[in-house]
Write a protein that binds this DNA or RNA. Structure first.
Lengths: 353, 353
DNA sequence: CGGGTTTTGTCAACCGGTTGCCATCATTTG
DNA sequence: CAAATGATGGCAACCGGTTGACAAAACCCG
């Protein structure tokens, strides 16, 4: 806790310099070297390479560093090494709660391993996404793309440059982390079948969404297996509002149960149906996807197929870090299990009306 | 779109080098200089200082840069200049939806001005927060602290080093962006008074929360004005679960209307009360704070005092950028207005017991 | 047409680390 | 006791830009 001997006595020729030089954290390895009476390169080694210097000088240097309150300058380090200890995460839409958990998962494992997370958004546009990715590419060691909208080739091109991990989509030749929808969907459809439903509608998401197609395929397969009819409806936008707008089509479809591409659609749909006097789940069952924050705020609380998004973010970050630290570079897809979260919005149809 | 002439013919003496040198983005200003037949420093000037070089060489250099697909190396630039074109955002809890709007607001204005956003979380711990702040300090041009948990002195210390903007709290001598609770609260309390309520409970948030105190003061003042009684209750945690746990105290308090420190508490409280057969708002009115995502998913939808969090994030980022670009460095507090969002969870008490 | 001013480009130092190579010194061994 | 071996520290080049100082070239004017 000794006051770092500020050279107050030095004549302030040259005036004020940039900012205050006092408490600032700009001690360099040269300062340490001078204080410890060694060469700067020795300081560098003491501070990074473990047993490269004698324990005596090591101690000397560490003490000096502590006294000077030294912190490496990440830029100076990044320049020759190319390693930045930073990685990027690009999400399609920061507004969408689906990504909250992904961001959290990624951030947590990043800082846990002494990495810094840089965040960017693509606003659902593949062009913006590509620009953001290119921009980030220059400053990060690796990149995570959550539900990317750009096409496969662009992703592969990025992956050729630096490690890339994709979440919520499968891209040949690039490591991916994808919720395996099948388990959750079959649980959902089986539960519907058990409750006497015979016709199920699927409300699809954005056309460029890889995941929306997988879910539709899953619904079809599960319905086939359970001998239910499956129909597909389209939505305008995968939001609460988009969900509201599908209510008309849903009623027209004659289905007594609906699975929607995501929870937001489900919530909007439920609100609109209830406003029209439809009782959920007595008249119609609604099941969403993802189990986002707030899915249980509704009345009845939303039944949904949970994707462990937090885990996805975590797993993606881990894969990236493993990649960067040389421990095996598998490019395969990592599946994480989905499961049905049974709440109040699905159940038996009432014979009434 | 001409293929950058890859020197395929070059003898690959020296073997593979690090990574593939082909599509990689590592053209340097030296490459450009060679191609354009000028000195590297001229390239540097052409690319940053506007009118420093003749338009002829300017063009020459720009063409070469385009052809080589040049991108500056941010680290190389940051080293001598100290400018990183990056700023940090530290939030108390990534899980808390309150912060998502802040993050979004900050991210948007950051990328809009060609800055990169680095995200970190303090997990509600002042120690972690300080560590994260210190870590970030080294790599960013400025820092935004959203609902910081560390104490004023630490914040001021950071602010002495680099520009810092605080959201959701007022710190003497540091630029802050704070929702002004008064307008929203008086609207809320007046609406309660108009509906015949006479006793209002306030469920407080975490003790270290500066904002929780402001809200309590606001509630007291507004109740005084409207001649209502105000009582204060404590919560364990500012979450849905914490809200549930306050239900007992709320009923015991005899208040017919409740304002809670945030929406999560309000939602939890409402769920628990409804589970016990209390009808909202007929028996009790509930009003939250912030208008977070999902506040309107509940039945009845939550009445709440909206804080324009997105605007806060935006405004904080803007202040930071203004600061960095020299246009005035006001340290004052910027207030943003709050307003009552009247939904279904508040209203007239039914005489029915 | 000469001298002065302005524009344009070059040189070289610098930011703060990292790292290959070599010199030195200590230690071990025959 | 000398030579071999290994541990340790120093030197200097390098990463890729930026920038102050200065020289060369271009332009201006009377």
């Amino acid at each position: 806790m000794t006051e770092p001997q500020t050279p107050d006595t030095a004549p302030s020729t040259g005036s004020v310099k940039k900012h205050a030089r006092d408490g600032k954290s700009n001690a360099t390895i040269y300062d340490i070297a001078k204080m410890a009476g060694v060469n700067a390169s020795t300081v560098s080694r003491a501070l990074s390479k473990p047993g490269r210097v004698s324990s005596k000088t090591q101690k000397l240097i560490e003490d000096a560093a502590a006294e000077l309150n030294y912190q490496v300058n990440p830029f100076a380090r990044a320049l020759p090494t190319g390693k930045t200890n930073t990685f990027g995460l690009i999400v399609a839409d920061i507004t969408n709660p689906t990504f909250f958990d992904i961001i959290r998962g990624a951030e947590t494992t990043a800082t846990g391993r002494d990495y810094t997370l840089v965040l960017a958004e693509s606003a659902e546009s593949s062009a913006t996404e590509l620009t953001a990715a290119r921009r980030l590419m220059a400053t990060v060691d690796g990149l995570i793309l959550a539900s990317p909208r750009m096409d496969d080739d662009n992703i592969r091109a990025l992956a050729r440059d630096k490690p890339v991990v994709v979440i919520n989509r499968e891209v040949e030749g690039v490591p991916c982390v994808v919720p395996d929808v099948n388990k959750g969907i079959s649980e959902a459809v089986r539960s519907l079948a058990a409750n006497g439903h015979t016709k199920v509608a699927y409300v699809a998401g954005p056309p460029q969404s890889w995941m929306s197609e997988r879910r539709w395929e899953g619904v079809q397969a599960a319905c086939d297996w359970s001998r239910l009819k499956a129909v597909r409806l389209e939505s305008t936008k995968p939001t609460v509002d988009g969900g509201r707008k599908t209510a008309r089509d849903v009623r027209a479809s004659g289905a007594t149960a609906v699975l929607t591409y995501n929870d937001l659609l489900a919530i909007g749909l439920m609100q609109e149906l209830q406003a029209a006097g439809v009782v959920v789940p007595d008249h119609i069952s609604i099941i969403g996807f993802d189990d986002i924050f707030g899915a249980d705020f509704t009345t009845p609380p939303l039944t949904t197929v949970r994707s462990p998004l937090g885990e996805c973010g975590e797993a993606a970050a881990k894969r990236l870090l493993d990649f960067l630290h040389g421990s095996g570079a598998q490019t395969g897809t990592l599946s994480v299990e989905t499961e049905l979260v049974l709440r109040g919005s699905s159940g038996r149809i009432l014979p009434a009306k």
